[in-house]
Design a protein around this nucleic acid. Structure first.
Lengths: 251, 251
DNA sequence: CCTGTTTATGCATGTTTTTGCCGATTTTAC
DNA sequence: GTAAAATCGGCAAAAACATGCATAAACAGG
């Protein structure tokens, strides 16, 4: 094994695991610990990694774990996100809306699942940094802070040029007759296009969002495909939605 | 588990929960309480947290100045970022590269300064969420994880349609004769356009980046305007850069 | 092809760092 | 005031480390 090749492997391992131990590397690479240490020191000098006692850590600044602090707060959202995972197949191209539930979904994606994820939410991009197999495409534009996402013609125009296997979104408001609606005009605009460009739309929303109507219409129920909601959702509403051809999953 | 890694986790936990107990941490991290105490004491000495009997609290609790709250993992980068602030005037439109120093700069922007910030780095967008007066425009495209930024034609095309008062960037490598260069091709591409579209380019880089040459040329020294570096930068290199019309600020 | 030089590697040496434990001391809570 | 918890200091074992040295391979240049 060549020196450069070995150092390359070390960096790869580091990138993959987020940390490497000198002793482990020595065994894995079939060289002495001294050699590994020399490699690590060299890579450290070249700013390719952060050398620490016992091994090395990545150079790159650690991405703050925005979703972690929410974890305990909303187990229900977590549950719905996990259920949504079932609608993702390897190698698909999916579109993720912004919002807490979508953030949970991004976080829940298995680290070894090859996937293309498109989103207008920078938080989701940050969350997917450590998913090696996930290619992330970020929709740019004006950063609309109330929804933590990009909006505007730049984003919608890019969207119109793409097709998605699935569009995942949280539910601002979902009403059997008045359909799916959102709070902000800017957001509704881009969500409308999102629904159009995706083969199927999967809405994740708690019982508190069902039967609601918000400011701006996004789509009617027949344009949606799946709703993931709680066990204790109002049976009448669920039935009304099912009659409009919406598959309802209760977790 | 590496020491640095463990301390990092402690800080993260502290950040999320707002307080940590030595006993809990010991159990959580699978080390003895003595080790945790040593970690806490070290982090305390490094001003990363406030050590108290039984555990630790975040630094900012009795530091009213909100700006002091950032983790100062790299005081030198922080210093350079603060110096760069002097080159920003209210109501300007500035372009921020990705990288840790730029992240510090974004954080250091006064909360009441009206500004338009453009960046291809989602982290920077996230950091600016709470800057009410700052309008953020995110450049979309393929998310290039090694540099934590978006790259590709989408981003460069958007860039070409804009003008900026200033472009701020960290220094991968700056050499008097060979100019400013970057590690990745994708990154160099977009940085080149960035320099072109901005009235002035301000480079922030430690002494360890001066005199280096990296893989992909971005600009020659005469295309740059300001370098912010350390006091102990190599005098010969500094002079060579100044002779090429680069204003050098040493902090 | 031969020879001197550089480079990469492993080993032996002694040193430093990290860590857990123990007993003594301080702080906290009741 | 007392008991429990937390802390401090020192100590020792294990791990990680730096250093010098020897060997072998790769290289350069006649």
């Amino acid at each position: 094994m060549l020196l450069a090749e070995r150092q390359s492997l070390i960096l790869k391992e580091l990138n993959h695991k987020g940390r490497v131990y000198a002793a482990d590397l020595a065994q894995q690479l079939g060289v002495s610990e001294d050699t590994v240490r020399r490699d690590l020191n060299q890579l450290g000098e070249r700013q390719m990694l952060r050398r620490v006692h016992g091994g090395a850590l990545p150079m790159q600044l650690d991405v703050p774990d925005y979703a972690d602090r929410l974890e305990v707060k909303h187990p229900a959202k977590q549950k719905r996100a996990n259920a949504a995972l079932a609608f993702i197949q390897p190698r698909q191209t999916i579109l993720l809306n912004s919002g807490e539930t979508c953030l949970y979904l991004a976080k829940a994606i298995p680290r070894d699942m090859p996937l293309t994820v498109v989103s207008a939410c920078p938080l989701i991009a940050c969350e997917l940094v450590h998913h090696e197999k996930v290619e992330v495409i970020l929709l740019g534009g004006t950063f609309f802070k109330p929804a933590l996402r990009c909006v505007g013609t730049a984003a919608t125009n890019t969207l119109r040029k793409m097709r998605f296997d699935s569009y995942f979104t949280g539910a601002c408001a979902l009403h059997p007759e008045r359909g799916f609606s959102a709070k902000y005009l800017e957001e509704a605009e881009i969500m409308r296009v999102s629904v159009e460009q995706a083969d199927q739309t999967i809405v994740m929303g708690g019982v508190d969002r069902l039967g609601l109507i918000s400011n701006h219409q996004v789509a009617n129920v027949r344009e949606l495909d799946v709703l993931i909601t709680d066990q204790d959702a109002d049976a009448a509403i669920v039935q009304a939605l099912q009659e409009r051809n919406l598959q309802v999953v209760q977790v």
